[in-house]
Design a protein around this nucleic acid. Structure first.
Lengths: 236, 236
DNA sequence: ACCCGCCTCGCCATTATTGGGGAGTGTAAA
DNA sequence: TTTACACTCCCCAATAATGGCGAGGCGGGT
């Protein structure tokens, strides 16, 4: 695992997006594949990327808003485990046209993508791709899947570090009853049902909801539940 | 990586929850630690677990609803990377009491937990813990972190496989307008404000909210927003 | 050509939620 | 001991949300 350690150290020392970019290039050269790409959507919905695709392809991709139909994105969004591009659903006509165009722009015909999810809906993809036969690619994936996963996680750890600089909001603490109230509401109970479930009067429940609203700085109940969920102080 | 391969194969062959249970026991024996635990919350909010904790402790944990205050759960829910229990916030008095009690029930004083997130808000934790000094534990983590992560992912892959057999709820796909509507509501906008922000009539907005409610199988707006957030299809 | 899903708008009546007042208990910290 | 906070209950009136009934236009796929 010596080579792996080298790369994880490289990534742990990364300070900027450019360092991540450089890391993708080194990985590409090491694995002798066409491309290595890491890209992610943060909790604010902004997109970032580091990779070895040509800027022409990146521009084209953004311009045509391929994100909306790219089967790789789609497939990974529904799965937990890494996917070989061959396993994806390329039956739709636009999907096949997209693949054809990607290959024209130098993207490999074979690919392997690892999806990752962080807190607050953060979502990231780490991709290796190349132009080769199915057999050669299968062997590559078989041999390197576990290493690639570790590297992918180092990338994502770094990406989340970049974000964290802003993120240190103290979590408001809700009382047990307030937590229960918010949890029932998040489960879809009406106030009457939640009050019933907690065996208290609806008025009392209201007091909890209002207290939680104020503590969470929320405009209304829906907002309060959304904040409680995003902050991870309740789980449904 | 021979030992690793052995365990990943063991997991890939697992057919039932009992097989996962057996795998935790074998891992515990192999790593010579006090406990190995894997547990997860599926997209329906149901909880499952496999691990080597005593049933006394599991019962106690459930009975006292420690899930609501366990700093490990809390900490992992906000992080992407694995956490050493020492890094967590144990300053609250109930948290310290909880730890003391856990140790009485045979849980180690040291622990390392890997959080994982799957599609549709699935969330899982893989934990190794033991009773030992800080130095010994640091060395253990240092030496095995990457292997543990791969094993953790094999567990989660399997858990998601189990789900797929029952849980054939494809993630409901909301239209762009429906997504916008839900996002504004999650941000605390009232219907009137959201309609204004989207420059459409409040009635039209209502149609989107109702459509989203139905697609998400939600009882009311708050529920719909909660589900959309949990499923990760909107982010605030 | 047709259907289906998406986007847009309207009215009516009912029900749910919220904001403003209250008041009393118990526990736990300052 | 005073202060603070969590927990419990109540009323009234205003506002917001929901359920059900419509309508038409646009665009993609079979």
């Amino acid at each position: 695992m010596e080579v792996l350690d080298e790369f994880t150290e490289l990534l742990q020392d990364a300070k900027t997006l450019e360092d991540l970019q450089a890391a993708t290039e080194q990985l590409r050269d090491h694995y002798k594949v066409a491309h290595i790409v890491y890209h992610w959507v943060n909790s604010a919905g902004e997109r970032f990327g580091a990779g070895t695709y040509s800027s022409d392809w990146v521009d084209r991709y953004l311009e045509k808003d391929y994100l909306r139909m790219d089967p790789v994105i789609f497939g990974c969004f529904q799965r937990f485990h890494p996917v070989d591009w061959k396993q994806l659903d390329w039956s739709a006509k636009p999907a096949r046209a997209f693949l054809r165009e990607a290959i024209e722009y130098g993207v490999g015909n074979q690919g392997y993508t690892i999806p990752m999810r962080g807190p607050n809906g953060q979502f990231a993809l780490f991709t290796a791709n190349d132009t080769c036969s199915d057999e050669v690619w299968s062997a590559f994936v078989e041999n390197n899947a576990q290493y690639l996963m570790i590297i992918a996680h180092e990338f994502n750890k770094k990406a989340l570090d970049f974000e964290q600089t802003v993120d240190v909001l103290p979590r408001p603490s809700l009382s047990p009853r307030e937590l229960s109230a918010m949890t029932f509401l998040a489960k879809g109970f009406s106030r009457a049902q939640a009050a019933d479930a907690l065996k208290i009067s609806e008025h009392t429940l209201r007091v909890y909801i209002e207290a939680a609203r104020h503590k969470l700085g929320a405009m209304n109940t829906t907002h309060a539940v959304a904040r409680a969920l995003s902050a991870g102080i309740i789980v449904v």
